[in-house]
Design a protein around this nucleic acid. Structure first.
Lengths: 136, 136
DNA sequence: GCGTGATTACTCGGATACAAGATGTCCGAGTTTGAGCGG
DNA sequence: CCGCTCAAACTCGGACATCTTGTATCCGAGTAATCACGC
């Protein structure tokens, strides 16, 4: 039970894009270098974000990744779901029927976390970054 | 990012003990049979709960597991922590210094879930079970 | 100067390798209960 | 009826096998910009 490193990479990449370059194409190499990951691996992760519609990629020289138009509303939850999938964190696959009390509690708990993450927008965070000049 | 099956087994076992037999020793075989797990594997899981001080084991004939005296206050979180460990779900192990904004958000989100789970006591759930006669 | 082709700098996607953790099994050792047996 | 021994039922813990998943690399293919060259 841990968030994967891939999620960490995705979150940091998105925060960087939102805070530093909302409209420019940034090459995977540059993005990977900041986080000490191999470019090919990061590319795999970012492909998921592309499929989720948050960013778009341009191939060829001077290519790279760029935010899509509607990036203002992207939340932490969006990114996490894109990387980790949307499946429930807990499944009681016994045959108690669908109303396993434990399952209900766990799903509730998960919802608590998710609503928090849903309300945390990347753009809010980016504003904080700019104000306090924190390095990414 | 998923809760392990072991957590599921642990939660169900605890709920069963609290709801059905708060003071008797129950053999691992019987507990394992209910959940279609091998007894040796379940025993490994329950050992963790023993070390966490929630239940105690008695060896020998008619042995088994039994709740400890102070079982009234056991929460979901206690059990989950005993099985999954108490480490944070997310760690940004870059060298941004300790105040990585993303890390802060994720820890906050985790706290949301944990406080919910901390307030869900097993004994509350057991009461519901008895009232509604739901099968475990 | 202008089109055309080659080169370069990129991303994309599949195949593959590797490591770690979750899951599950096996077996020997220790422990308690209870039955059997002899005095 | 009492006490001793022994077998049975049980848990404990370590060692091991297996499976899945996360992490990462490699490479061939495709694509867009740019450069070079010939007309």
């Amino acid at each position: 039970m841990k968030f994967s490193k891939a999620t960490n990479y995705a979150l940091h990449t998105m925060l960087f894009l939102v805070a530093a370059a909302p409209d420019k194409h940034i090459g995977v190499q540059q993005l990977a270098e900041r986080q000490s990951v191999s470019p090919t691996y990061l590319s795999k992760i970012l492909t998921k974000l592309v499929k989720a519609g948050m960013i778009e990629s341009a191939s060829g020289a001077n290519g790279g990744y760029r935010l899509k138009r509607s990036w203002e509303d992207i939340s932490f939850l969006d990114i996490i779901h894109a990387i980790e999938g949307t499946a429930s964190l807990f499944d009681c696959d016994f045959n108690h029927g669908p109303d396993c009390l434990i399952q209900l509690v766990m799903v509730e708990a998960e919802d608590e976390m998710e609503t928090y993450l849903k309300n945390k927008k990347m753009s809010d965070l980016a504003r904080t970054v700019k104000l306090s000049k924190i390095s990414l």
